[in-house]
Design a protein around this nucleic acid. Structure first.
Lengths: 153, 153
DNA sequence: ATTGAAACTTGCAGCTT
DNA sequence: AAGCTGCAAGTTTCAAT
């Protein structure tokens, strides 16, 4: 499952995570290499799926998305077609930024970004009308202390 | 706080979120505009801080980061210098991808990415030795059902 | 791994509507 | 004001060595 990624690859990935708009020359300089080998490695890392996507990070507040909730879900249903339906409902909703199936007591956790508490309620009502859920706890974020897309390398 | 962002801006942002490596011409074509206005808008969105960062999304599994935990924290301490110390500890640890201060019963939630359960324990022991924490619950992710960096526009 | 070169892209100035 | 045109400088992509 894990790809072979050496120290130079990690250096390059760290640079890209930090600022993907850097030119090859700049990355080459910072990693003590030169343009072509850096380019070949990036190409290989893309092909191997280590690099999944080029994207931009947006500021949610500036876009009026001022509320963030973590939603803890317990369900009584564990059949595969319930799960399938639940999964599709989550995929279809853009306000769900993350969804994990958990080990233990709580079955799922979601991270949901919306404009405000009212918008969360609309989301919540829609979700529970689509799929049966036993118990829900919503944790409201008052402050994003840290938020990074950068994985530890 | 929220910037003035019109429908065309949102279209452009949606394109950039999806694939930031697209050329201006491509984005212009898809949004029914042309190169210069798209360029001007992107420049303005960067200056306004709506676009924070250009980055790449990496695959954690391919990098050997196979465990993801959500950590629910209760503390008895609410003084500002405890909070400052806690915050600095989180900022300093690259395995903490997100940290939120919450409303209600639970004080903080963290999202932590590590190689395995042992690596989590090392992190956890280090954290509680640095700052006093009243109660911790770790939720282990078995499966990442959904994960996106794209905000709903 | 380095050089080099073609194709493409960006960033901007000046012109047009 | 806002978009379109055009172009120089910079960047990517890749082949040859």
């Amino acid at each position: 499952m894990a790809a072979q990624v050496d120290a130079m690859d990690r250096n390059i990935l760290a640079q890209l995570q930090e600022d993907a708009s850097q030119s090859l020359d700049e990355i080459a300089r910072k990693t003590g290499s030169s343009k072509t080998p850096v380019w070949n490695r990036i190409k290989k890392l893309r092909a191997a799926g280590v690099i999944r996507q080029d994207t931009v990070v947006l500021d949610p507040e500036k876009l009026g998305l001022e509320a963030c909730f973590f939603v803890l879900i317990r369900t009584s249903e564990h059949e595969s077609d319930w799960q399938e339906k639940f999964l599709q409902a989550l995929q279809a909703r853009p306000e769900v930024l993350e969804a994990h199936r958990l080990a233990g007591d709580i079955d799922y956790i979601l991270k949901v970004r919306v404009a405000n508490a009212r918008a969360y309620d609309v989301f919540y009502q829609a979700l529970i009308s689509e799929v049966r859920i036993f118990n829900v706890t919503a944790l409201l974020s008052m402050e994003e202390i840290k938020s990074t897309t950068a994985l530890p390398l």
